[in-house]
Design a protein around this nucleic acid. Structure first.
Lengths: 120, 120
DNA sequence: GTTTGACTTCGAGCGCGCTCGAAGGAGCAC
DNA sequence: GTGCTCCTTCGAGCGCGCTCGAAGTCAAAC
């Protein structure tokens, strides 16, 4: 047994193509291969993959994720910098949410305008 | 007097190149020209431009914005459909914010993990 | 034993949203 | 008139993040 690329794809929501691509660019560390050369993912691989999708969906650029991944490979002595990176990213996400919330208000107003116009 | 492309650029935060591009693809209706052929923006043009940037920053694809712009040009009889489009978009923005907020929580947890590890 | 199907590597291509550069024109300063 | 700056049109190019297809390998099913 072992997790196939199909299963990893289903779990992470990324296509098999994308999983290979992520490995190619160093986002995921060299995944184990079976005797026949097929990728065999581990549970920790999946966890990491899921975390990566979080970073992506919050808008972190691939390049930054690569940097983070590299620090992670270098081991515990980079943990302070990794923390710093995540904290900075968190700040950007907060700003993003604030901005979106503001835009949502404008959208609400605009929709309300359509409603009042229709009524008059 | 009249608003130049530079001023429109400053107001909207879009580059002059982008303003011309938006006009080219029909996002902004043909802008008036001066005798020398230079673009002369009006106040309503600017308002529209600013609204467009809201739609963009909330993630509406250019193609959808073009569609909306076209409906707007067709006049008041399209207002119901425009309202519908905005309401649907608003829903997506809400979902977006919800998703980001959830991801933010995960980020918080991850950062906390770094903190507790460091302390131990 | 052959077919099926999922996998491999590799490099090219794509869609989106700009972004840029070339080539030329008008207007003003000196 | 010679710069200089800012504008024009037009089409090509770019950066990001995938996405795809070709060509080949291997294992299990029939």
């Amino acid at each position: 047994m072992g997790i196939t690329i199909q299963e990893a794809s289903r779990t992470s929501g990324l296509s098999a193509h994308t999983l290979r691509y992520y490995e190619r660019i160093g986002l995921i560390h060299q995944v184990d291969r079976s005797v026949s050369g097929h990728r065999v993912y581990t549970e920790p691989d999946l966890d990491w993959l899921v975390f990566l999708t979080r970073l992506r969906s919050t808008g972190m650029p691939i390049a930054d994720m690569c940097h983070y991944a590299e620090l992670r490979r270098r081991g515990p002595e980079t943990s302070a910098e990794r923390r710093r990176i995540l904290a900075a990213h968190r700040e950007r996400v907060r700003e993003r949410i604030a901005r979106l919330t503001e835009d949502l208000g404008v959208l609400d107003m605009k929709i309300e305008m359509y409603d009042t116009k229709e009524r008059s």
